[in-house]
């Protein structure tokens, strides 16, 4: 039986790793050299966050599972990331907009998690705040450039927004697992993040001449282990060597 703190930490870790993995797919294929480096930077930040979070999750669980056991030896139903992060990388507009939507949420989230009663989570969050501030700034600038750039870039950004918007609702979900941790001062209440996120989104969308879609029906399920078709393919890449050579040291 997973404890709430284990599940919660795993959710944060899985979000970071899956999104970091998606960003890392760009390496060597970016639209310009500077952006290739920037996407790799953001991927490295997320993978670094994931490593710390997995190590902490393993310690919470107390069964001796390492960061690699947790990331390389779980199948889809045991992954706890939101569906947003597992969407395939798409074009540059999709990647940038997703990163912006996620970072605009995680930056204020980590600011508050830095005051968590769980000291390890607080320390991990304190470091991540600075990283996510850069992600918000960098991707926000690109959202503006693309939205107020050419007709094609604006159309691509709009298309990406239509694709991504239904996946943003899951960031704000709270279930029983999380409510108990919020009450205990360990987890952050995403309801508190909502107005900050709205402010960042509205400001950047305003400059990007992008109309915010209405909040209608939202996709959900990843945090409970109900994933899209895409996660399995991501894991078959990620886990290939560990699965093919069980027990080997790398």
């Amino acid at each position: 039986m997973e404890t709430p703190l284990f599940t919660y930490t795993l959710r944060l870790a899985d979000n970071a790793l899956v999104l970091g993995h998606r960003l890392s797919e760009w390496c060597g294929h970016g639209p310009m050299l500077e952006e290739d480096l920037a996407l790799a930077n953001m991927a490295l930040d997320l993978i670094g966050q994931a490593r710390n979070l997995y190590t902490h999750a393993g310690a919470i669980e107390g069964k001796g599972r390492s960061e690699d056991d947790l990331s390389y030896l779980r199948d889809c139903p045991d992954w706890r990331n939101i569906l947003l992060v597992e969407r395939p990388r798409g074009d540059f507009a999709f990647t940038i907009l997703r990163q912006f939507l996620y970072a605009a949420f995680m930056h204020p989230y980590f600011e508050r998690l830095a005051a968590s009663k769980d000291e390890t989570l607080a320390a991990i969050a304190a470091k991540a705040v600075k990283e996510m501030a850069y992600h918000v700034r960098h991707t926000g600038e690109w959202v503006i450039r693309l939205g107020d750039g050419t007709e094609e870039s604006a159309a691509r950004l709009k298309e990406a927004l239509d694709d991504l918007w239904p996946f943003t609702g899951e960031m704000f979900e709270v279930d029983g697992v999380e409510q108990a941790l919020i009450d205990a001062g360990i987890a952050v209440d995403p309801a508190v993040i909502r107005p900050v996120w709205n402010g960042t989104i509205d400001h950047v969308f305003g400059e990007a001449l992008l109309t915010r879609p209405r909040d209608g029906w939202m996709q959900t399920g990843g945090r409970r282990g109900e994933h899209s078709e895409h996660l399995g393919h991501l894991l078959s890449d990620l886990q290939f060597l560990q699965r093919t050579y069980p027990g080997a040291t790398w």
Partner: peptide
């Protein structure tokens, strides 16, 4: 091999290395 590196440590190191080449 970035998406298929066999551990998170190797993955981060390889990504950083390839990023260095770009730099």
């Amino acid at each position: 091999w970035i998406t298929r590196a066999p551990s998170l440590k190797r993955k981060a190191a390889l990504l950083a290395k390839v990023q260095d080449e770009g730099g």
